[in-house]
Design a protein around this nucleic acid. Sequence first.
DNA 1: CCTATCTCAGACAGACTGAAATAT
DNA 2: CATATTTCAGTCTGTCTGAGATAG
Lengths: 158, 158
Amino acid sequence: MESTREEQVRFVLSRFKTLGSVVQASRMPELMQLDLSMAQFRTLMILGSGGPKTIGQIAHELKIGQSTAGHLVDRLVKAGYACRAEDAEDRRRTVVQTTSAGQAFYEHFASGSETIARYLSELADDDLKALYQGLDALYRMVCAKQGLSAPPSPESAE
Amino acid sequence: MESTREEQVRFVLSRFKTLGSVVQASRMPELMQLDLSMAQFRTLMILGSGGPKTIGQIAHELKIGQSTAGHLVDRLVKAGYACRAEDAEDRRRTVVQTTSAGQAFYEHFASGSETIARYLSELADDDLKALYQGLDALYRMVCAKQGLSAPPSPESAE
DNA sequence: CCTATCTCAGACAGACTGAAATAT
DNA sequence: CATATTTCAGTCTGTCTGAGATAG
């Protein structure tokens, strides 16, 4: 491996790109069958990434009226992707969150990790270790740049 | 690093998951502004991943009528994400393909590699090398499992 | 005549709004 | 009374279909 640093960066990037295409391909069947409108899809993505939200918060993030946001949530609930619960602090508020089906769908879309998982366990020992080291370093870089919470040690991994 | 293989697999997977969430977060602004319906979005994903297609092929893949597929393509063309060209072999056929804007959107969605690129170049040398080795091994595993073309050597990356 | 696409007319669903009703 | 959400018209846009027109 005698390539320059710059070449290595380009190479890693191209691998990320290719693996991204594989993950995207794994998303296609679900995307085809998905019976959600774009507005509903957006709502599901917001709930999946941002956790439970009130109707008002959803309306604000999507820049639509509360009436419309309520309708969107209605449909997500009917489709089984979201559910409502009363807010204990203020019973006027309804907190909306993903169901397990909704969260699973979001995660499949966000990371496609089930797709990766199928290949990962068959890697050679030293390749797995290398991936371990490289991804962890990348993760820590992302955390640092985004000012996220201190990188948890390997032991606390999900 | 004294973890077992199984722990390492779980750890790598959790890192993929987290990085996937970061990439997903980077997709949100575009997703919010995206003025495409779900049917149009699906069509764009098909064109982006599968290359140029005729109206008939698109209709078949989406399991809709050719009339509807034609309308969907119309809108993608108006939105600037796709364009039509005559098929040289059979001038009855119209070949539809993504514009550069459409392809860029697809790739942003599929891999989110621009997001990764921002962090990659600042990794320490040995972490970058490790990522290089690990991702390449993973890529080769994917190629092997999917019976894809023989893994190109590092030099032919991209 | 056959095939690929486009055009047209019409049914239907979802998104969205603003105003009024309800609940806390 | 103020706030969060729902309900209630009503409009608009997009999807989809099938029949018929057009082109190769």
